[in-house]
Amino acid sequence: MFYWPAFFEAFPALLPGLMVTIELTVLVMPCALIVALSLALARLYAPRPAARMATGWVEFWRTTPLLLQLYWLYYVMPSETGILLPGFATVAFGLVCNVSAFLSENFRAGIASIRPGQRHAGLALGMSERQAFFRVVMPQAWSRVMPETASMWVELFKETSLVSTLAVADVTYHALALRTENYRTLEVLTALALSYLVLAYPQAKFCDWLYRRHRVRE
C-alpha cells in the first residue's frame, strides 16, 4: 500500500540534504574541469616523465571503484597520513579526483582529434602556442567533448549519493535516516528518486542546449 502522506512528508525532510547534494555537485564539477584540463595538457604536451605521471594518476582513479576511493580517503588517509579533513571536503576531494580522471581522458582525446594544421594556421598568423591553443584548438575540442562532459555532470550529480555512506548528510543520507525512523521504505525512496529525477532532468536538458549552441559545423 502506497501511503501518500508519508510520501509528501518526506520532501521537507529531504530538503537540507538536497542542498548538500547540489553544493557538492556545483563545487566539484568546475574544479574537476580545471584539473581534467591540466591533466590532459600534461599528458599531451608536458615532458615525458610528467606526462607519464599524469597518465598513471589518471589510470589509478579510473580503474578503482569510486566507493573504495571515498572509503580510503575517509578512513585510511587520516589514520595513515595524519591529514584529517572534514567529511564534506574529503568526499569533494575524492569526487574531483575521480571525475577529473574520466574527464581528462575525454579532453585528451578531444584535443588530439583536432588536426595539427589548425594549430599551424594559428602559429602562422603569429600567435603564441598559448593563443593557438585557447583561440583555435580548445574551442573546437570543447565542442567535441561537450556531450560527454554534459553526461558526466549528470552522472556526478547522481553518484554523489555514495557519500551518504560516509556520514555526509546529502539527500540520500537523509532519506535513509528517515526510512529507519518511519519504516516507510517505499514512500521515502520513491520521494528520493523523484527528487533526483526532477533535479537531473533540467540539468540534462541544459547540457543538451549547451551542446547544440557549441556545435561546430565542419
Binding site: A124, L125, G126, P139, V216
Partner: peptide
C-alpha cells in the same frame, strides 16, 4: 613569432578556423 607575423601562409587544406565566421577568421590575426 615575429617573423610569422610578417609572412602570410596559405595551406593546401585551407585550415580556416571552423568555429569562426569568415569575417572572424580574417579578423583573428
Amino acid at each position: 613569432r615575429e617573423i610569422r607575423r610578417q609572412i602570410g601562409m596559405v595551406f593546401q587544406s585551407f585550415e580556416l578556423f571552423p568555429h569562426m565566421t569568415a569575417l572572424a577568421n580574417v579578423s583573428e590575426g
